[in-house]
Write a protein that binds this DNA or RNA. Structure first.
Lengths: 89, 89
DNA sequence: ACATATTGTTGTATATTTACAACAATATTT
DNA sequence: AAATATTGTTGTAAATATACAACAATATGT
């Protein structure tokens, strides 16, 4: 019964929307794959709250990517520049 | 006001105790470093509940290790065997 | 052996995440 | 343009994580 004043814990950034769209699936479908309510995906994508570590691991499994690639304490760089920097190395 | 029937979400495994002891610090001190109540560390070490992703990231920062090295959906292998396998590659 | 620090246990309160429903807004398809 | 699917919004309930206190149990240091 607490509807106001959320997100006292530090806000995290994520690439869920991007990763989901790259794979051409809706929130509903993603939600089904990780066994969570489809509205929960919306909350996460909008950054209205942070996931549990469990949920983060489930996303990690579905996307086949490390948690740190999906979530970050710092704003996400565009994938394009990440790729560019990586190939420069 | 819910004291019974916890942990419906899948149990995670972790190496917090090990990593903390390797660094020779108490729960109290670890708790202070990551800005959490010292009893919370106890709950995590005992696996009585899983952390938020936020808390996992904080531990990751303090230990300077990826989240996946600290937490896992599978029981943790001894570090010794992880090291051995790594050097064999 | 004693003092002190660390860890475990129980109990309660609060915060945050997740579920779910209903419906509005927007986009996509036909 | 109408039908359908997807996303956003608001409201409420339930589950899970975190804080905190008090005290027992265990370990550690002297």
């Amino acid at each position: 019964m607490y509807y106001i004043c959320r997100m006292k814990s530090k806000k995290l950034y994520n690439r869920i929307t991007l990763l989901r769209q790259e794979r051409g699936i809706s929130r509903k479908e993603l939600a089904e794959r990780i066994g969570v309510n489809f509205q929960t995906i919306g909350y996460l994508e909008r950054g209205e709250y942070n996931p549990s570590l469990n949920l983060a691991f489930n996303l990690s499994e579905v996307f086949e990517l490390p948690v740190e690639f999906i979530f970050s304490t710092e704003p996400m760089k565009p994938l394009s520049s990440e790729l560019y920097n990586k190939s420069k190395k």
